[in-house]
Nucleic acid binder design. Structure first.
Lengths: 236, 236
DNA sequence: CTATGTCAACTAACATGTTAGTCTACTAGA
DNA sequence: TCTAGTAGACTAACATGTTAGTTGACATAG
C-alpha cells in the first residue's frame, strides 16, 4: 500500500491552459495523471494543489469532481482522494466502448465521405509515413491521434470525439507506459492505410474490419504490460 | 424568447433521493428537466433552488455543473443558466452514439450469453407481452427500459449503461413528448422478440440488425414531433 | 504477539461571504 | 422612432469559514 503523496512539482502552472479556473485546474491535474507524473495510489491533497496553483479550494473541488466522474481518481467521502490504480476491467471496458464508437464512426465516414475529407486523410497518412521514416516517434504519436480525431470529426458529430476520449481515458493512460516497439510504427501505418483505402472505396464493412483489426492490436500489449508492472494495477 | 423562470413547485424534495446532497440535487433537477416540468429556455435560479430544497449553493452548483456537462442546461458565465432547448443536431448525435453502443452490446451478448441470461430475457419479453395485453403503457415503458438495460448489463461492463444513458439524455427527453401511439407497443414487442431470437441463436449479426431496425423506429417519430412543437426546439 | 477499542488528526462536503462579468433597461442623441 | 451608449441590478465564479465523517495510530486487553 503506497501512502505517498503526489509529487506536486510535476504539476504544470494553470497559466498554460485556457478557460475558467476550474477548467484549467482540471486540465493540469488530468495531464499529470495521464502522463503518470502522479502515480496510482498517491494521495491528492486539495491544500497542496491550491497552494501550488495559487487558487482557492472551489475550482480544485470542481476539477476533482470531474476527474472522479471519469474514474481517474477515487474519492473517499470525508477522508481522502487518491489517483486511481490501473484496472484491467476498466481498460477492457474502455477498449470495448472506444471500439464501438470508432467502428460506427468509420463506417459512417466511409458511407458519407467527401472528396475533400478523403484528401485530408491521405495527407495525414502520408505525413505519418514521413515521420516513421524519420524515426520521429513523438510526431508519429500525435499524427496517429489526429488520424482518429479526424475520422470522428468527419462524422459531423461534435461531441463524439469528447465522448470517445472520456470512455477510454484509462486506456490512454495505459498507453503511456507502452514504449515504442520496434517495427510497430510501420505496422500501425499499414493498418491506417487499410482504413483509408476502405474509406476511399466507400466500403463501410471493410472500413469497420480494418479499424477493428487496428484497434485489436493494442489490448494484448497492455495485457503484457500488466504482468510487468503489477504495482500499478489493482485487482479490487 | 421565453424569459420565464422554472416552475420551482415542480421540483421533488431531495428526501426522495439518495447519496450526497449534490447528488440528490442533481437527480431532482435532472428528473424535472427530463420530464419537461422545467421547460426549455426557462432560467434556472440557484437562489430559488437553494430555498426550495433547503441547501446551500455549493451542492446546487455542483449539480448544475454536471447538468451542463450533459448538455441539459446552458450556462452563461457570470450571468445565467437556462434549461437547454431541444436541438435536432444533438438528438441525431445522441441517437448515433446510443446505436453504436447498443449494437456493439447486443452483438457481444449474442456471442457470450449464458442460459441464465437467456431465461431472464425471455422472462422480460413475456412480461412485456402481458403489459401490452393489459394496455399498461407506463408498465410497458419501464419493461422496455429494463430490456435494454438488461442487455447492457449482460455485457459485463458496468459503466456501459451509464455512458449510454448519458449520451442519449436528449433523446430520452424528446421521447417524453411522444405520446403512446396505437399499435406501436405491439410493434415494439415484436422488435424486441426479434432481438431475443437472434440472441437465443447466438447470431451476433442478426442481433445487430434486429436492434438496428428497432432503434431506427424512433428517429422519424421525433422528427415529426419537431414539426409540431417548434417552440421547444432551437436551430442555433 | 495479536486483536480490539478509543481518540485525535485530517479531509471532503457543505455553508457563506466576495468579486467580477453579463444582461437589460433606461436615457440621450440622431 | 430608432439606435447607441451607459449604468445598475443580477448572477455565476471564486474565496473562505464550518461541520462532520473516516482513517489510522496507539494503547490496552487477551
Amino acid at each position: 500500500m503506497t501512502n505517498t503523496d503526489i509529487d506536486i512539482t510535476n504539476l504544470r502552472e494553470i497559466g498554460a491552459f485556457e478557460g475558467s479556473l476550474a477548467q484549467r485546474v482540471y486540465l493540469a491535474l488530468q495531464e499529470a495523471i495521464l502522463s503518470l507524473q502522479f502515480l496510482p495510489g498517491a494521495v491528492v491533497r486539495k491544500g497542496l494543489i491550491c497552494e501550488k496553483l495559487g487558487v482557492s479550494r472551489s475550482p480544485v473541488s470542481e476539477a476533482i469532481a470531474r476527474l472522479s466522474n471519469e474514474g481517474l481518481v477515487d474519492v473517499v467521502p470525508q477522508s481522502a482522494t487518491r489517483v486511481a490504480y490501473f484496472s484491467m476491467d476498466d481498460i477492457r471496458e474502455g477498449t470495448f466502448l472506444r471500439e464501438a464508437l470508432e467502428l460506427a464512426s468509420v463506417a459512417k465516414v466511409a458511407r458519407d465521405r467527401t472528396d475533400d475529407q478523403m484528401a485530408q486523410l491521405n495527407r495525414n497518412v502520408r505525413l505519418q509515413a514521413l515521420l516513421v521514416e524519420d524515426g520521429d516517434f513523438a510526431g508519429f504519436y500525435q499524427a496517429d491521434e489526429e488520424f482518429h480525431a479526424m475520422l470522428m470529426h468527419f462524422t459531423g458529430y461534435p461531441r463524439l470525439k469528447t465522448v470517445a476520449r472520456m470512455v477510454s481515458l484509462q486506456v490512454t493512460r495505459a498507453r503511456m507506459l507502452l514504449l515504442p516497439t520496434p517495427g510497430r510504427s510501420n505496422e500501425t501505418l499499414e493498418e491506417h492505410q487499410a482504413v483509408v483505402d476502405a474509406v476511399r472505396d466507400q466500403d463501410p464493412d471493410a472500413a469497420r474490419e480494418a479499424m477493428r483489426y487496428h484497434l485489436g492490436q493494442l489490448m494484448p500489449r497492455i495485457e503484457a504490460l500488466a504482468e510487468k508492472r503489477p504495482d500499478l494495477f489493482q485487482s479490487r
